[in-house]
Design a protein around this nucleic acid. Structure first.
Lengths: 147, 147
DNA sequence: TTTTCTGCAAATGCTTTGCATGGGA
DNA sequence: TCCCATGCAAAGCATTTGCAGAAAA
């Protein structure tokens, strides 16, 4: 499983292995995905790079995020009525806890997830390939703020 | 919590309470949502009604699904890169198992979900309000089909 | 009759694609 | 040099909205 410490070199290696050219734009996008903790959207990535690459088009961001996703090196998170968010730091399925007030997203370690996957498989007969497990609630800070 | 047996009368009552007119199209859409086991998309609902209402527009389906959702009587499921699916039979959050081949969605009964919610709350300090728990895999039929 | 609802078409908003030019290797 | 990648604009999709006529209450 991907090591969060070495994500950028790993993605670089995968790009090279698959004979993709290492353009400045591509490298910059890969770096943001590799290091991001905040599950950025394509729009956000584009804005983050607007100083370094004033003429870079949104299409380039879309194409490269998609490319890196196709290499299995980024996790795509779709939210109803919102643009997709991406996680290249932990590119494998994992649970999220989202604060509905401040939108902070954190990644909990859930011991019970393996058991649940087994339970699903046993009950339904499906071969389980991946999951999307999100909890929505109110974080400690927002709870305190509302007192 | 909504009783799966009485969903249609319940939705009807909610529409009346809020002074919405009971047009034939609206009633037909409500009935499909109330009884559906298959998490239909707007497109699917439109097709299901195309015999009874040959001139009904997609916009009417969208508007009415949204209306019933605003009354809290249908659960909306967004999937990345796919159209939304709707569940008016169990309009509260619950886990799903999705076949990535044929898109069939079923509702497993997961004993471990309560425990997991408790674990999330304990580990993160968040007050958990709702969840979105989906598993993706291959259903029995599609497994057989691929042999 | 009054007001909402419907059907149609146009408009959104996000994402993808075609094409000509530019730039890695 | 040879292609792939980029920027731009146009095209795609799912969904929403404006509008005028139709239908519920």
């Amino acid at each position: 499983m991907a090591d969060p410490q070495n994500r950028y070199p790993t993605i670089l290696k995968r790009l090279r292995e698959n004979d993709h050219k290492l353009t400045p734009q591509r490298l910059a996008i890969a770096k943001i995905l590799a290091r991001s903790q905040g599950h950025p959207s394509v729009e956000t990535i584009h804005q983050m790079l607007s100083v370094e690459f004033p003429t870079m088009s949104l299409a380039t961001v879309y194409r490269n995020v998609l490319l890196i996703k196709s290499l299995g090196e980024v996790l795509e998170l779709g939210f109803a009525g919102d643009s997709n968010r991406y996680d290249g730091n932990k590119p494998y399925p994992h649970p999220h806890v989202v604060c509905v007030k401040c939108k902070t997203i954190i990644d909990p370690d859930l011991e019970s997830l393996k058991d649940m996957t087994a339970e699903v498989s046993a009950e339904t007969g499906y071969t389980i390939l991946s999951h999307r497990v999100d909890f929505f609630g109110i974080c400690r800070a927002c709870q305190a703020r509302n007192r």
